[in-house]
Design a protein around this nucleic acid. Structure first.
Lengths: 206, 206
DNA sequence: TGTACATCAGTGAACGCGCGTTCACTGATGTAC
DNA sequence: TGTACATCAGTGAACGCGCGTTCACTGATGTAC
């Protein structure tokens, strides 16, 4: 938007990422084309080459941005939650689910796709940050360093697994089978999901 | 193999499904082409049209076959397990994970892809059978009909979620972060996974 | 402030490729008598 | 058992399409003096 012309509008990199995300949402992750992204961004199909090496490069960057927004979604839930360690962990899980529901195709790109380059430093750093956040939340409950406490680290696996499983089944529309869940209001559903996340966690009672 | 000629070999439908599965395994679910499947099956690219309406039809059928093998993987684990209701549920979860590990691309086709036609009776029946199996296993523990017992049905959600989350994170190579798990032998790892699955289940203590 | 020049970031034509689908065809198989 | 014929299930050429990538180009912007 810096200028009306598409020449040097200064923002194309960001615009392409946004367009790629829209493409992903609309067409699903299985059909994705750089040419359509360029078209959506209002630019010729050769233009992206000036900003990304290839379509894999663009998707890798998009996945990395995704992890940042993923963390933000968790923080948003945590701000609204009680401050005790368990409520915070549960809120983080709800944020995990929020993010997946709101951005299913991006979530799939981040967790189930082989398209992004997982060796890329920018992507692996973003993903690591999300993981470390989870470890810290469990550590607040266990009052140990999970890296030195297998029981706590098992709870990290458990909490991650439950959040991830709920998120993935939800966006695959598998939970709509459960009419008692589907008919619930959001608050009650959140309460059930929080309970499931905390069930998985045993360190609190140690 | 009924005859050396490719004409009327009588088995092409099955051969195409097998070839499609191999393609999926090797190339991943994101790049899939009917022409390559035909080539792999040793047949001209026009031949599949005599057996499947289109590539979506083939993948739908493959997903349906997948659910049958998915159930078999669970039964295999259950045969080796103790016969009490809880051990059987845990074994079923381990079978879920076995299947995903052994057939990651097929698992993704079944649970995370939009390519198969979920309205298809053959697919939805197969998927329903897998679901009913899980409901029955929880019912054996709760000694209630989960369709009339929300607490039991919540445990169905929980057990499914944990099994699915573990399976999906495992094939996304996310669990290799956990060195204590990655360094374990299979038996110990199974014990941890079983514990996680049963943690999710509360009806047994009611 | 004005001018010359370098660099940046677009354009759009061109390339070769693999895709799904269609279709006239034909060889193999099955059936009627 | 033999023959005529129908049907089945392949073949392979042809179609139009969208893809990623390359490249000579050019207009816009930034810099030196």
């Amino acid at each position: 938007m810096a200028s009306k012309s598409n020449y040097h509008h200064g923002d194309l990199r960001r615009v392409l990422l946004a367009a790629a995300e829209e493409e992903l949402s609309e067409k699903g992750g299985e059909a994705f084309s750089l040419r359509r992204v360029a078209k959506r961004a209002g630019v010729s199909h050769g233009a992206p080459a000036h900003h990304f090496k290839d379509s894999r490069g663009l998707l890798t960057e998009l996945a990395a941005v995704g992890y940042q927004r993923f963390i933000e979604a968790q923080q948003r839930r945590q701000q609204d939650a009680a401050t005790d360690a368990e409520s915070q962990l549960a809120a983080s899980g709800l944020g995990y689910i929020d993010f997946a529901s709101a951005n299913p195709a991006l979530f799939r790109l981040m967790f189930s796709s082989e398209r992004p380059d997982k060796e890329s430093p920018v992507l692996s750093k973003s993903a690591d940050a999300a993981f470390e956040k989870l470890v810290n939340e469990v550590a607040r409950i266990s009052k140990t360093d999970p890296y030195c406490d297998q029981r706590a680290m098992t709870d990290v696996v458990a909490a991650w697994t439950i959040s991830h499983g709920l998120a993935d089944l939800l966006i695959a529309d598998r939970l709509s089978r459960f009419s008692f869940l589907a008919d619930m209001n959001a608050t009650d559903r959140d309460a059930i999901f929080s309970e499931l996340i905390l069930r998985a966690c045993t360190v609190r009672s140690s």
